[in-house]
C-alpha cells in the first residue's frame, strides 16, 4: 500500500541523554496525523524500547517511521555488533545491558519481548559483525 508519510531518525550509540527524543517526536507526529488510543500507545512504547536498544546495545543506527493507510511501521537498523543468540535475546529477563543503562532504570531484559507484545507484526534479523534489523507493524483501525 502507498506510503503516506516517512521520517528517519539517526540514533547515536551510548547517547543516554537524548535517548527517547525520536520516540517523543514519533508520538507527537502520529497524534497530529490522527493516530490515537491503543495503537498510539503501543507504537510509542515499542518505539521507545527499540530506540533505547539502539542507544544501549548498537554501534549506532537509524529508526524509520512510515505511515500507510492501514498501518504504522517502525524499522530499526544498526551497524552492529549484531546479536549472537537471538533466542536468548528474546527471552524475558535476559539482558546484556551495561551498568550505565541499568542505573537509568533499563536493562531488565524486557525490551525485545515487550516490542513483540506491542506490535501486531514483529520481525528481527541479526548477523554478528553486520547488524540488526527490527521491523514492527501496527494495524490502524479501519
Amino acid at each position: 500500500m502507498e506510503e503516506l508519510f516517512r521520517i528517519a531518525y539517526p540514533v547515536a550509540s551510548a547517547d543516554y541523554t537524548s535517548a527517547g527524543q525520536a520516540s517523543t517526536d514519533i508520538k507527537r507526529r502520529l497524534k497530529q496525523l490522527g493516530v490515537g488510543g491503543d495503537v498510539l500507545r503501543r507504537v510509542a512504547v515499542a518505539s521507545y524500547e527499540v530506540e533505547l536498544n539502539l542507544v544501549i546495545h548498537s554501534l549506532g543506527g537509524e529508526l524509520v517511521l512510515s505511515v500507510f493507510p492501514d498501518a504504522v511501521q517502525l524499522v530499526s537498523t544498526d551497524v552492529g555488533p549484531g546479536i549472537p543468540d537471538l533466542s536468548m535475546a528474546m527471552r524475558e529477563g535476559y539482558s546484556t545491558a551495561n551498568e550505565e543503562a541499568r542505573s537509568l532504570g533499563f536493562g531488565a531484559g524486557m525490551g525485545l519481548p515487550n516490542m513483540k507484545r506491542n506490535a501486531d507484526e514483529f520481525d528481527i534479523q541479526s548477523q554478528v559483525g553486520t547488524g540488526t534489523t527490527i521491523t514492527m507493524r501496527f494495524k490502524l483501525p479501519t
Binding site: S23, Y48, G105, F106
Partner: peptide
Amino acid sequence: GLTNPHVIRTSEMLD
C-alpha cells in the same frame, strides 16, 4: 525513587 529524564519519557509514552 528514580528521578532521571527517562522517568518522564516513560510516563509520556504510557500517558
